[in-house]
Nucleic acid binder design. Structure first.
Length: 355
DNA sequence: AACTCGGGGAC
DNA sequence: GTCCCAGAGTT
């Protein structure tokens, strides 16, 4: 589809289905559009409307906002969250008062220079309020474009972001830009929704790559799970001549708090040191038998644990294992009465299989 | 309980 | 440049 066709279809859809009754669309001055855009960055339209109405009553123009105490501004933001945006809004109003004679600037660069306004919000304000031909790239537009062009990858990645901006610029029509900008946001909000997009009602459906592939819901790619930190730990699996296994009660807080598990160490050296000092008698005369067992991996919400178990066959059961409430010898032929860490459960199971 | 949203700030 | 965060709503 040629460039004008894309915008023409979007505009034709807007003329029939676009939103025209939103409060900031009545008398869309840069100030009114600006405030709405900042509120809409964090909150959906239905929630924003009452806040917007109250805000505009209290701060009807840039100077009213600039001259208000910050407390009053924050008070009118109470419940919207992201209070730094209210502070930025307030600061930008003062910048406009002090550096632009109280008149909202009309160039993209000057608007972008204001606190809390980036490339997309600047484009939106100048498009919606002034009819200038700028692209925007908010969450709604990202979704529409990522699907239409089947842009793979998470939009947080700079390369993906760059590609989306390029498409956004490419489709910008030379005229009716305000309607086009509003239409793209409306399409993203009402048709091209994150889940269950209404492709059958979409004016772009016939040429939308993702729709043609049948997988619009796969775009844009979700934020990648952050790579969890990996922790390597060593555990002593102590076995006495009766075949009983030494278990340690973990501290009440932290991972597996209060559960029984194998004594665990940051590295092998610490494990062996503990073995000699805490558990084995006369290591020099009769060193215990050591054997590395298959390592275990366990994923927690905030890290991945790789546990290297070291099986230790002690020559005597009377080790220096002390403090009965924190230590015990477990007879593995019996059911264990108490909480076992998942690591201990798996290790005991593995142990049964190899013996 | 996980995911989302544009811009700012730390690095 | 890149990563992480804010915070309430939505799913």
């Amino acid at each position: 589809m040629t460039q004008p066709d894309f915008a023409h279809r979007v505009l034709a859809w807007y003329d029939r289905h676009g939103r025209t009754q939103l409060p900031w669309q009545q008398d869309p001055t840069p100030y009114r559009v600006w405030v709405s855009e900042i509120m809409l960055q964090q909150t959906q339209v239905a929630t924003v409307i009452p806040y917007y109405t109250r805000f505009m009553q209290r701060f009807p123009d840039i100077n009213a906002l600039a001259n208000a105490p910050q407390d009053a501004v924050l008070q009118h933001w109470q419940g919207l969250g992201y209070y730094s945006r209210a502070r930025n809004l307030h600061r930008a109003a003062q910048t406009i008062r002090d550096q632009h004679h109280g008149v909202f600037p009309q160039t993209l660069a000057a608007v972008e220079a204001l606190s809390g306004i980036g490339r997309s919000t600047a484009g939106a304000i100048l498009s919606l309020a002034c009819g200038q031909a700028h692209a925007i790239l908010d969450g709604n537009v990202k979704r529409v474009l990522a699907r239409y062009h089947a842009v793979a990858g998470y939009p947080g990645q700079s390369a993906v972001q760059r590609q989306l901006w390029q498409y956004a610029e490419q489709h910008v029509p030379p005229s009716r830009n305000a309607a086009y900008t509003q239409a793209m946001m409306d399409m993203g909000a009402t048709l091209c929704t994150r889940r269950k997009p209404a492709c059958l009602l979409c004016p772009l459906q016939a040429d939308c790559t993702a729709a043609k592939q049948g997988n619009p819901q796969d775009y844009p790619a979700p934020k990648p799970k952050k790579v969890l930190p990996e922790k390597q730990r060593f555990a002593l699996v102590l076995r006495n001549p009766h075949g009983e296994i030494g278990l340690e009660k973990r501290p009440p807080s932290g991972i597996w708090g209060g559960l029984w598990s194998f004594p665990e160490y940051a590295d092998e050296q610490a494990a062996l040191h503990a073995l000699h000092t805490d558990f084995a008698d006369s290591p020099a005369k009769q060193p215990p038998m050591l054997k590395h067992l298959a390592p275990l991996s366990h994923t927690f919400s905030h890290y991945r644990l790789h546990l290297q178990p070291i099986l230790v066959d002690l020559h005597m059961s009377d080790t220096r294992i002390m403090a009965a409430d924190r230590w015990l010898w477990y007879n593995t032929t019996q059911a264990f009465s108490g909480g076992l860490s998942s690591a201990a459960q798996r290790l005991l199971k593995n142990l049964k299989e190899i013996t």
